[in-house]
């Protein structure tokens, strides 16, 4: 019998605690009993891989999913998905969703009194290329109020969901914009104790990739847990 290697835990401060009272919804929904160590078995070392057939024509262009152009500030969002060794994660499924320019989500439980945009659904997805790159076209989401505390407003953000090599690389996070004065006030952003780790959630204005007289670009690289030699199952192979 050999000693079984257990799943490694994150570097303290770089991931949020489950119980974070500043974010009120975490209080009754976060586990309070001790977390259990898990052997890293084939179940944990493998993960789903998605084929190109999942992605449709305008899935990466959130401004082209309806008859007309959405209102708001047109943006490009691009970056690379890397593993812990800095190697590109190829074929990673990247899913995004966001509020419209007025800070309103196309969702039945969003009751913020801001207009919906008939030309904007706010959802997209893509697979990274051979160099781990992804690219979206969208509009800059607005800030919006929420019920966490008195006069609470979320800083502008785009939700990102990613699958890398192996199920333990799974990540759901939010991309923020540089210079947003709401960030220091936001308990979700500040649930990550480490300042450098918080800063890594903020995208960078990228004038080189902006298009004059058309759209600004924001660059954001995302590091996923794991290393590319992790074995994974290929869909349908």
């Amino acid at each position: 019998m050999i000693e079984l290697r257990t799943v490694a835990t994150a570097i303290p401060g770089t991931q949020p605690d489950y119980h974070f009272p500043g974010y009120v919804s975490s209080i009754a929904r976060s586990p309070r009993m001790p977390l259990v160590l898990l052997p890293e078995t084939i179940t944990e070392k493998t993960g789903p891989v998605f084929g190109h057939g999942l992605i449709r024509q305008h899935d990466h262009d959130l401004t082209a999913q309806h008859g007309g152009e959405p209102l708001g500030e047109r943006i490009f969002v691009h970056g690379r998905v890397l593993d812990e060794d800095g190697r590109p994660v190829r074929g990673a499924l990247v899913e995004v969703w966001q509020a419209n320019a007025s800070g309103r989500y196309l969702h039945k439980v969003d009751n913020h009194d801001a207009p919906l945009d008939p030309n904007f659904s706010g959802a997209g997805r893509t697979l990274t290329d051979e160099e781990g790159r992804y690219w979206f076209k969208s509009i800059k989401p607005g800030a919006y109020p929420w019920g966490n505390h008195y006069n609470a407003w979320r800083p502008a953000h785009i939700h990102f969901s990613l699958f890398g090599a192996g199920i333990l690389s799974r990540l759901v996070t939010q991309m923020y914009f540089p210079g947003d004065p709401l960030q220091p006030l936001d308990p979700i952003f500040n649930s990550i104790a480490d300042e450098a780790a918080r800063r890594r959630m903020i995208s960078r204005l990228d004038m080189d990739r902006s298009e004059p007289n058309y759209a600004l670009a924001y660059a954001w690289d995302i590091v996923l847990r794991g290393r590319s030699e992790t074995l994974f199952e290929e869909a349908g192979r």
């Binding site: 994150a10 570097i11 770089t14 991931q15 949020p16 974010y23 919804s25 890397l82 593993d83 812990e84 060794d85 800095g86 939700h159 690389s169 990540l171 759901v172 996070t173 939010q174 979700i188 952003f189 649930s191 990550i192 780790a197 918080r198 890594r200 959630m201 995302i222 590091v223 996923l224 847990r225």
Partner: peptide, 8 residues
């Protein structure tokens, strides 16, 4: 590299 932080 340090993996990106999770958000809800």
């Amino acid at each position: 590299l340090i993996p990106a932080g999770s958000q809800t």
